[in-house]
Amino acid sequence: MVKTANNPGGLPIEVFDGFRAALAANRAQFFLDVPAGPFYGYNRPGAEASEGVIRNWWRQGMMGSAKAHYEGIKAFSETDFTEDLKAIEVPTLVMHGDDDQIVPIDDSARLAVKLLKNGTLKVYEGYAHGMLTTHADVINPDLLAFIKA
């Protein structure tokens, strides 16, 4: 996800440095701020935030290792999966919301599906990164249909 010569559409490293700084400064607040805002799209006009969803995300985050979370930011932002994706031969469903503020669709799913030998991209209009939680009623049947096919 980080901007490099091989990934010119990526985000500047300062974005991920900011995540690390926020996590290190106040991990508990970080795990409230992210789900209350961009992760589930609750920062969008008209969005109705679910306090239960936010607090469940916080609970899951606080159960994990602070070091693992800190290092995880490096892993998800700086690891190049290009060769891994090219090696996958089984049918693969890539699901992505087009309003994902965490992992922008153009620099992730649309690139990934081109690298997969047998990939299918399913785009969900208006869905945020946390769509598996907020739209399970739509996502789960699509997953099941893909598996059955």
Rank of each mutant, 00 (worst) to 15 (best):
K114M: 00
E71I: 06
G72F: 13
T92N: 01
D107T: 12
G72Q: 06
G72D: 09
D84V: 09
P104K: 05
V113Y: 03
N118A: 06
K86W: 12
T92Q: 02
L115G: 00
D99C: 11
L115W: 04
N118Y: 00
G72A: 14
D99A: 15
Q101T: 03
D80Y: 07
T92D: 01
S108P: 04
M95V: 07
D100L: 08
D106A: 11
K114G: 11
T79C: 10
H96F: 07
P91F: 12
G119K: 00
L116A: 10
V94H: 00
L111S: 13
M95S: 11
G119E: 01
K114S: 03
I105V: 15
D107W: 02
L116M: 11
A109C: 08
L85S: 07
F81H: 11
F81I: 15
D84Y: 10
Q101E: 09
P91A: 06
I102W: 07
I102Q: 10
V113L: 01
K86V: 06
K114C: 02
G119M: 01
Q101C: 00
L115D: 02
G97F: 03
S108N: 13
K74V: 15
L85G: 03
K86F: 14
T82H: 12
G119Q: 00
E89L: 12
Y70E: 11
S77D: 03
P91K: 05
N118T: 01
F81V: 15
D106I: 02
E89R: 14
V90S: 14
D99K: 08
D98H: 10
D107G: 14
S77Q: 04
A75S: 12
E83N: 13
V113W: 04
K86R: 15
L115P: 00
Q101H: 12
T79R: 12
I73P: 08
D84C: 10
A87F: 06
D100H: 05
L115S: 01
K86A: 14
G72K: 09
D99I: 03
D84K: 06
L85V: 07
L111K: 15
E89A: 15
D107P: 00
D80A: 05
L116I: 08
H69G: 15
F76M: 14
G97A: 11
D100Y: 06
E78I: 05
E71C: 06
I88M: 14
R110F: 04
